[in-house]
Nucleic acid binder design. Structure first.
Length: 921
RNA sequence: GGGCGCGUAGCUCAGCGGGAGAGCACUACGUUGACAUCGUAGGGGUCACUGGUUCGAUCCCAGUCGCGCCCACCA
């Protein structure tokens, strides 16, 4: 017995439990051992995070694919898991410490701090997984992985060592993007260019040999002038050619710096001369390399002025040197003011201009990043990128929509070395050990590193063999002798291995053999570079094969104004609230219905409400079927159905099946959802069920039985079609409808996807379209003539041919009921004072003598006539155009002719009706 | 500076070479034995603008205006 209303809150947990108990989502289920594999790896959410709307969207689409393919009989693996999210998670725990007024991480020490992070991971780690389950995600939860699992950590070390062995990972000292708040290096991708309103300061630098001559430089960062080691001018810039090779005495420090000629300098910008600070600017660094300039560092790790103990500032004879030294320890922005002040007092500040420019910021910390000279680990991604590019060019991996390929190409073609070391604690510690002389040993384990190191130092006569053997037996001495690199790897380093590390690599597991390469990756474009490109690169490197065949790039979910949702803006739509209020099916259906390719989604709750109502509609349709004894029959053969209505609905259903199937296959989720929606509501509920009412309450037993069986059969298809989008509701109804019919084999989640059987019947289609149109026309006229909704009126048909008469006989009861007619009669003339309209070849009349408002009727008919005249004129214009007749395809010409004919026939009838109306008046 | 995308009904969005669509909102009517989380009927759009291609353009091309995003080292 189906309850009166569907209650997601009660049903969802029960259905989830049933899926889980049956192991419905487990990959490699026995009965599918021989089935083709279909694999998707989930974009792993932050382990300590909470489900946001983007996750809901991303996972809904993946789940649609997985459920669809599972129903199509594939052996589906949807690999779930979570990411340790290095910086993000570490920041959260640090903030917690601050809020709880506990000692900060440095005071706690690495070991203790990591304990706290793990505790936080254990405490909050299940949250997002449970939220995904609530959404209905059909992952193989028994295979859940975490990027810092033992297995995945092993994979990280393995590939690090292999890349190092291949010369593709190396350590280097160069400028990096340094985050002075988080105190770590970050990669280029983690830097965001933010437009800020700043200033351009013009400083005069006096020449050393003639202080009356000054060269003007412009800068947005006055404080860095303390680290200037040259002034560059363009070699072709005539204004400055005579100065090249001469020295400038840098104000405030008294340092002598050369004027060099370098094409980096742009004569159009500023004064044409540019100050060069190789230690604090990427471009200047390059210039410095070219001219052998020294690097003068003026910042500490927190980007405060660092001037003490630096001979550049402790010696020299500039009168302001003392004041400059006093800036030591001052943050860069305060120092900027002070430097400008000093220059102004010296009369060397020429002018200040307002200047809008972009400033690099750390995407996590939000503070301006500082190019800073440090030792870091880099991956030489260039050769890896080549292979990734080739794979996409060859079509071994395909992007949907295709235009993302270009973005992918552009980035990979211009790829820079990837800085992978982070000065954090939460993450995979780099498997590198340093000997006392700084020699590096990159090995899989500490034991191997120790062994290699001892062998190395023995070989180089630094250790005696006896001493080495002794040390090998003494862990404490070893630990003091060989120090492990303290840094950890970029979070994305482990994410880059996700498609194969989760399958057991580097072990040769059966899962790896079966499910790699995976079938599809579903993700948003914002992690195309961070993640997708890197999975491609490492996947090809270790597996020699792409990690996924297809990459479906979906839109970003934005707020109703199109802005990216963020907590700070307060425009976040919380999917959990939507789940509570409308249920998982409604949210999922909404997201799928809005997933048109190539455009961002602006989510509104009104839409969710609308699709919640859709769920209610389905529920009530099921109740209708139940009340009317629409029970499934095992002997039902949809190809041998007699009733027109039934043949018609089976054909319409089949069209929906074909449309939904092809739409999902081509990742057009919105079209799939739309096709299902239109069929279920617009065809099945609005028309089929209404049309069956007279049959189900009528006398024709055979037709009644057939109709019941057909309704049940179609409803089964509906449940299956909708299952990928609305798994809970459909699964629930699947079992509720099981109570009355023959027993089902099991869960809908494991049932078969509906098959097309060539059931479209053009004749039945014609007939039903005629009936539907007739009913709509009658209703329309009734409404416009203000016939009371409950009133039964007679219908008179004039000029109905044999075919129409036959149809009329078939559908008489239906017509009377749906159009609220008292009787239908055939006549040669329409009764006086009736409202008329066109019904195919016939003219229909509703005798409304006395009820009819002549003026209103005249207006109604006049309006329709005008429309028809307009259409005929438009078509005539086309048909009268010789060019059109000559060049347009024949079908198009025929179509236009047909349409003209139909419109003309209609127009004639309307004209007659108007004439009759005039006579009546 | 380079690239991508978008401007279609009041709102949120589909469509994309030959008849302008959906949901929500709006108007009128309606408790007809599935459903008022509903039904029936209806109003509402020179498909941003200007040119071009075409027999034919909301759709293709070029340009203009407006909006958004991504990438980039510009003093």
């Amino acid at each position: 017995m189906i309850e009166k209303t569907f209650s997601p809150a009660d049903v969802e947990p029960r259905i989830s439990a049933a899926w889980e108990a049956a192991g419905a989502f487990r990959a490699g289920r026995q009965e599918r051992a021989a089935a083709a594999p279909y694999a998707i790896v989930i974009p792993p959410p932050n382990v300590t995070g909470s489900l946001h709307i983007g996750h809901a969207f991303n996972n809904t689409l993946q789940d649609v694919l997985c459920r669809f393919e599972r129903m199509r009989g594939k052996d589906v693996l949807w690999q779930p898991g979570t990411d340790h999210a290095g910086i993000a998670t570490q920041m959260v725990v640090e903030r917690q410490l601050t809020e709880a007024q506990q000692p900060d991480r440095r005071t706690l020490g690495r070991e203790e701090f990591l304990k706290r992070v793990w505790a936080w991971k254990e405490q909050s780690g299940g949250t997002i997984i449970n939220q995904l389950k609530r959404l209905g995600a059909s992952c193989d939860w028994s295979r859940e992985r975490f990027t810092m699992d033992e297995g995945l950590s092993k994979a990280v070390v393995e590939i690090f060592v292999r890349l190092h062995g291949a010369g593709l990972i190396y350590k280097d000292k160069r400028l990096v993007n340094w985050d002075p708040k988080l105190l770590t290096a970050i990669s280029d991708l983690e830097v965001q260019q933010i437009e800020v309103k700043g200033h351009l300061w013009y400083f005069d630098y006096p020449l050393a040999d003639d202080r009356t001559i000054k060269i003007t430089v412009a800068t947005t960062r006055p404080e860095t002038m303390l680290g200037d080691t040259a002034v560059a001018v363009h070699p072709d810039d005539e204004r400055w050619q005579a100065y090249v090779g001469r020295m400038v005495r840098l104000p405030l420090t008294g340092r002598l710096i050369p004027i060099v000629a370098d094409t980096y300098s742009d004569p159009e910008k500023g004064s044409g001369a540019v100050k060069i600070t190789p230690a604090h600017d990427f471009n200047d660094f390059e210039v410095g390399q070219r001219h052998g300039l020294p690097l003068v560092n003026v910042f500490d790790q927190e980007a405060r002025m660092f001037l003490k103990d630096n001979p550049d500032f402790t010696t020299g004879d500039d009168p302001d040197l003392h004041a400059v030294l006093a800036l030591h320890g001052l943050d860069r922005f305060s120092a900027r003011k002070q430097v400008v002040d000093m220059m102004e007092r010296r009369g060397l500040l020429q002018k200040i201009e307002a200047n809008q420019h972009t400033v690099p910021h750390g995407d996590r910390s939000g503070v301006p990043i500082e190019p800073w000279l440090t030792d870091q680990w880099y991956v030489d991604v260039k050769p890896l990128a080549e292979r990734a590019l080739q794979a996409v060019r060859d079509g071994r991996t395909r992007f949907v929509p295709e235009n993302w390929e270009r973005v992918f190409f552009d980035w990979l073609e211009n790829i820079q070395p990837w800085c992978v070391s982070r000065q954090l604690w939460w993450g995979h510690q780099i498997p590198a050990w340093y000997g006392p002389d700084g020699h590096v040993f990159v090995e899989r384990t500490e034991e191997e590193a120790y062994a290699k190191a001892l062998a190395h130092y023995v070989l180089n006569d630094i250790l005696g063999e006896f001493e080495a053997a002794e040390m090998a037996r003494d862990p404490e001495r070893m630990a003091a002798f060989l120090k492990r690199d303290e840094d950890v790897l970029d979070t994305w380093f482990s994410s880059a291995l996700w498609p194969y590390s989760t399958l057991g690599w580097p072990e040769k597991t059966p899962e790896l053999a079966k499910y790699y390469p995976t079938s599809c990756l579903v993700t948003a474009f914002d992690i195309l570079f961070f993640w997708v490109a890197r999975m491609m690169m490492t996947g090809l490197f270790v597996m020699d094969e792409v990690p996924f065949r297809n990459v479906y790039i979906h839109a970003l979910v934005r707020d109703e104004k199109g802005a990216k949702m963020s907590k700070s803006k307060g425009n976040v739509i919380d999917p959990l609230e939507l789940l509570d209020e409308y249920g998982a099916d409604a949210l999922r259906f909404t997201l799928a219905a809005m997933a048109a390719q190539g455009r961002d989604i602006r989510l509104s709750t009104a839409r969710v409400e609308g699709y919640r109502n859709f769920g209610t509609k389905i529920w009530n349709a099921a109740r209708f079927c139940e009340m009317n004894g629409c029970v499934r029959r095992t002997d039902f053969d949809p190809t041998r159905v007699a009733g027109t209505v039934n043949r018609w609905v089976l054909g319409e259903c089949e069209r929906a099946i074909v449309d939904v199937t092809s739409a999902i296959e081509s990742y057009r989720f919105n079209e799939a959802a739309g096709a299902a929606y239109r069929f279920v509501w617009g065809t099945f509920c609005d028309w089929y069920l209404e049309l069956t009412k007279p049959i189900l309450q009528g006398e024709d037993g055979a037709l009644k039985d057939e109709t019941r069986a057909t309704a049940a059969y179609v409803f089964d298809d509906i449940l299956a079609l909708l299952h990928p989008f609305m798994p809970f509701l459909t699964e629930e109804l699947w079992h509720l409808t099981d109570e009355t019919g023959p027993k089902r084999a099991g869960l809908l989640a494991l049932a078969s996807w509906p098959r097309a059987r060539d059931l479209v019947d053009p004749e039945a289609n014609d007939e039903m379209n005629w009936l539907v149109e007739l009913i709509q026309s009658i209703r329309s006229v009734r409404a416009e003539m203000n016939v009371p909704a409950g009133a039964q009126v007679p219908l008179v048909l004039v000029g109905a041919g044999a075919k129409m008469q036959a149809r009329l006989a078939t559908h008489l009861e239906t017509l009377k009921r749906l159009a609220r007619l008292s009787e239908v009669t055939l006549a040669d003339h329409a009764p006086k004072g009736s409202a008329r309209f066109v019904a195919g070849e016939a003219t229909a009349a509703l005798p409304l003598e006395g009820l009819i408002d002549l003026a209103a009727e005249k207006a109604r008919l006049g309006k329709e006539q005008a429309k028809l005249v307009d259409e005929i004129a438009r078509i005539d214009a086309k048909l009268g155009n010789a060019q059109f007749m000559a060049r347009a395809p024949e079908e198009v010409v025929e179509e236009q002719k047909d349409r003209r004919e139909a419109a003309e026939a209609r127009r004639v009838k309307i004209a007659e009706a108007l004439k009759a109306l005039a006579e009546a008046a």
